[in-house]
C-alpha cells in the first residue's frame, strides 16, 4: 500500500526570491494508493511541492506528512519515496552509463526490482551501455520513468519525465503505471498528468472499446484519482478527478444566444473559465453543471452543451488569461 500524503498550509520561500513565496498556504490530502495529477504552469510551484514531499527541503511554514510522519530525515519514508524528473532525477555524472546508474540505484533503493527494471529496459529499448549524456530527451525520459517504476517506491513522483516520452513509450508507461497502482497500490503523483498525445490516443482507444470491459484498460481519465492545480504558488483546486469531470460545462453556439442563455441559466456573474469567439460563434466554459431541463432548453436554442474534458478544465484553471478573455480566437 502506498503512503497517504497530507499537506497543510505549506509555504516555501526562497532566498532572494522577493516577497512572493514559491508555495503559499497549500493544503490538500492524497489518500494512500491514489494517483494524483499535479498541474500548473512553469513557476507554479510544482517541483517545489514535490521536493518538499521527497524531503529534499524543509517547508518554510506549514506541515507535510507522509504516512502520518514528517518525511524530512525519516529513513523509512525517504527510502520508500522516489522523485524523478526530466533529467533522470539522479544527479549522476553525465558520463555514467545507464547500467552503472541502475547498479547505483540497486545499492541505495531497498525496493528496487531488478527484474522489473530489466523488463522496462527492454520495453523502452534503453541502451544500457550508453552514457547519460548521449541520451536524447526521450531516452532520458525513458530512463527516468524506468527508475520511477522499478523503484517500487510507495510514494512515487514523476516531475514531467513521462511528457518527454515518445507516444509509444507514453502509452507503455501509462499501462505499466496503471498496473503498478492497481496491483501494488502505490501512491503516485504525475506532474502534468498523462501527456496530451497519449491522452488523445488513449481516448480514441477508449472510445472504440466503450461498452465493454476493455474500457478499464484504455480510458485515460481513469488513471487519475485526484487532481491538484497550482497557480503562482497557490492552490487553485484539489479535488477528486471524478468531481472535476462534472464541474465544468461548455456552451457553444451563436454569440447572442449563448450570452442570453448564460445570463438566464447562471445569473449575472457566472464563473467563466474560458470565453472564445470565432466569428459569430461563442464558446464559453463555465463552472457548474446544467440540470437536464436547462440543457434541453439550451439545445432548443441552438446551443451545444457538453462536459469539459478534465485536461481542458485543468488548463482553464491554470491559465487565467483565458478567463480574462485575452485568448479569444478570432477568424482572420
Amino acid at each position: 500500500m502506498g503512503f497517504r500524503v497530507d499537506v497543510a498550509g505549506l509555504t516555501v520561500r526562497y532566498r532572494g526570491g522577493g516577497n512572493a513565496p514559491a508555495l503559499a498556504d497549500v493544503s490538500f490530502t492524497l489518500e494512500a494508493g491514489q494517483v494524483c495529477g499535479l498541474f500548473g504552469r512553469e513557476g507554479a510551484g510544482k517541483s517545489t511541492l514535490l521536493a518538499t514531499l521527497a524531503a529534499y527541503r524543509r517547508p518554510s511554514a506549514g506541515t507535510v506528512r507522509v504516512a502520518g510522519e514528517d518525511p524530512y530525515e525519516n529513513p523509512r519514508l525517504m527510502s520508500q519515496t522516489c522523485l524523478v524528473d526530466r533529467a533522470g532525477g539522479l544527479a549522476v555524472d553525465e558520463s555514467t552509463t545507464i547500467r552503472e546508474v541502475f547498479e547505483l540505484i540497486e545499492l541505495l533503493r531497498p525496493g528496487w526490482d531488478k527484474a522489473y527494471a530489466d523488463a522496462l529496459v527492454e520495453l523502452f529499448e534503453l541502451p544500457l551501455r550508453a552514457k547519460v549524456r548521449e541520451l536524447a530527451r526521450s531516452r532520458r525520459a525513458a530512463l527516468a520513468v524506468t527508475i520511477g517504476l522499478a523503484s517500487r517506491a510507495r510514494l512515487t513522483m514523476f516531475d514531467e519525465p513521462h511528457l518527454d516520452l515518445d507516444l509509444t513509450d507514453q502509452l507503455a508507461f501509462y499501462r505499466e503505471l496503471r498496473a503498478e497502482t492497481r496491483d501494488r497500490q502505490r501512491t503516485v503523483i504525475l506532474v502534468g498528468g498523462i501527456g496530451a498525445a497519449a491522452t488523445a490516443a488513449l481516448a480514441d482507444a477508449s472510445g472504440s472499446q466503450r461498452g465493454g470491459p476493455a474500457d478499464e484498460a484504455a480510458s485515460p481519465d481513469d488513471l487519475l484519482d485526484q487532481i491538484v492545480v497550482l497557480r503562482r504558488g497557490r492552490l487553485v483546486a484539489a479535488a477528486p478527478a471524478a468531481n472535476l469531470r462534472r464541474v465544468g460545462t461548455e456552451l457553444t453556439g451563436l454569440a447572442d444566444a449563448v450570452t442570453a442563455f448564460l445570463a438566464s441559466a447562471f445569473g449575472d456573474a457566472p464563473t467563466v473559465l474560458a470565453d472564445r469567439r470565432l466569428g459569430r460563434l461563442r464558446s464559453v466554459v463555465v463552472v457548474g453543471s446544467l440540470p437536464a431541463d436547462r440543457a434541453a432548453e439550451a439545445t432548443a436554442a441552438g446551443i451545444d452543451v457538453g462536459p469539459v474534458p478534465t485536461r481542458d478544465f485543468v488548463s482553464y484553471l491554470i491559465d487565467d488569461r483565458q478567463r480574462a478573455g485575452e485568448a479569444r480566437e478570432h477568424s482572420s
Binding site: Y116, A119, L120, E122, L123, D166, L167, T168, L171, A172, R175, E176, R178, A179, E180, D183, A201, L202, D204, A205, S208, Q209, G212, P213, A214, E216, A217, A218
Partner: peptide, 25 residues
C-alpha cells in the same frame, strides 16, 4: 485479458506494437 488488450484492438496508434498492458510487470 482486458488489461492485456487495452489500447490495442486495431487502434491507429503505435500501441499495436506494445506488449499487453502490464505484461512486463
Amino acid at each position: 485479458p482486458n488489461d492485456r488488450q487495452g489500447g490495442e484492438g486495431g487502434q491507429p496508434h503505435a500501441s499495436a506494437s506494445l506488449p499487453p498492458a502490464g505484461q512486463i510487470t
